[in-house]
């Protein structure tokens, strides 16, 4: 009887040791991120903050060792912008294909004072032991905006038309009421959207703006909406007030809830610019990212 008990105990200890050995085996580091349209518009010359969420398949990997980070930059084939890491914050656990991932927010500051557009942007983080990671983060654009000093043109009503396209909540239109506060006619010569992925693909003058934000845009425009229709040049005359619908086209289809824009206009022969740096048109509280959209990178062992 005693022999049997000893045998069972030995078996249990052996199983426990094997379990510990398997558990302690180093796991390959896998990381991924959701590709986004990262965009910064700013007026002041302060450093701008950028938050990039990164998913890592283990906690306490060297990737998240703040003190080990030597250098960080965002780049494409032609440009490099140095950024400074400020903080790494653990957010929560997520399950991807039944594997645990840990979501971290990496906070950076950018001290770059010029316009830049990177339709395909990569984040590189270099560590003190010469290891580095490079991730495709989507796109990156930055616009330095001059503050409008004139009050002859203004926007008094503003909202978005948001439709679901290919499973993504998409800002397909901007509805605005433009007001001429001056006494003479204003000629709008150009409207630009402040994001590398977006452009104006159509314009329509509306009778009123009593339109729900989730209305199908095809009920408002004459030709069916296409995400990548050709760009349209906008020219408008504003006497007193005008309701307009700007149709938003996309070079790359990202979910862009926040957008700024500029109006170049002519008033009494003077060329001026009205800028709306950023407006949050919508917030998607329950967003789904197909796993097929994610790129997984392996970066050795800890």
């Amino acid at each position: 009887m005693l022999k049997k008990i000893i045998f069972v105990l030995i078996c249990l200890v052996a199983m426990f040791v094997i379990y510990l050995a398997i558990e302690k085996q180093p796991k390959q580091i896998k990381i991924t991120t959701v590709q986004e349209s990262y965009n910064i518009n700013y007026i002041e010359s302060e450093n701008q903050e950028l938050k990039i969420p990164i998913l890592i398949n283990q906690r306490n990997a060297y990737i998240t060792e703040f003190k080990e980070i030597n250098n960080c930059y965002i780049s494409d084939n032609d440009n490099i912008i140095n950024i400074k890491i400020e903080e790494i914050e653990y957010v929560e656990k997520k399950l991807i294909n039944k594997e645990e991932y840990f979501l971290y927010n990496f906070y950076f500051t950018i001290d770059y004072k010029d316009n830049i557009e990177m339709p395909k942007a990569y984040l590189t983080i270099e560590y003190t032991d010469e290891r580095k990671i490079k991730l495709d983060i989507g796109s990156f654009s930055l616009y330095v905006i001059k503050d409008s000093i004139y009050n002859d043109l203004g926007i008094c009503n503003l909202k978005g038309i948001i439709n679901e396209i290919d499973g993504k909540k998409t800002l397909v239109g901007i509805i605005a009421e433009i007001e001429n506060h001056g006494v003479d006619l204003i000629n709008i010569e150009k409207i630009e959207l402040l994001n590398v992925n977006t452009y104006i693909s159509g314009i329509k003058i509306l009778n009123n703006i009593s339109i729900d934000s989730n209305m199908d845009i095809n009920n408002l425009i004459d030709t069916p909406y296409k995400i990548n229709s050709d760009k349209t040049d906008v020219e408008l005359e504003i006497d007193k007030t005008k309701y307009i619908l700007l149709v938003v086209g996309y070079h790359q289809h990202y979910e862009i809830p926040k957008l700024g824009f500029t109006f170049d206009y002519n008033y009494r022969g003077l060329k001026r610019t009205f800028t709306f740096p950023s407006f949050t048109f919508f917030e998607n509280h329950q967003r789904e990212i197909p796993i097929s959209d994610l790129t997984f990178y392996t970066y050795g062992y800890n």
Partner: peptide, 29 residues
């Protein structure tokens, strides 16, 4: 949120209850 989370996707639920609407300034007259 779990109801929406299918196997083939991860859910990105914003959990903050207090957030800034805008990070850049907007002047309204």
């Amino acid at each position: 949120e779990n109801q929406f989370a299918a196997d083939a996707s991860i859910s990105y639920t914003t959990t903050e209850s207090f957030r800034e609407t805008e990070s850049s300034s907007m002047k309204v007259t």
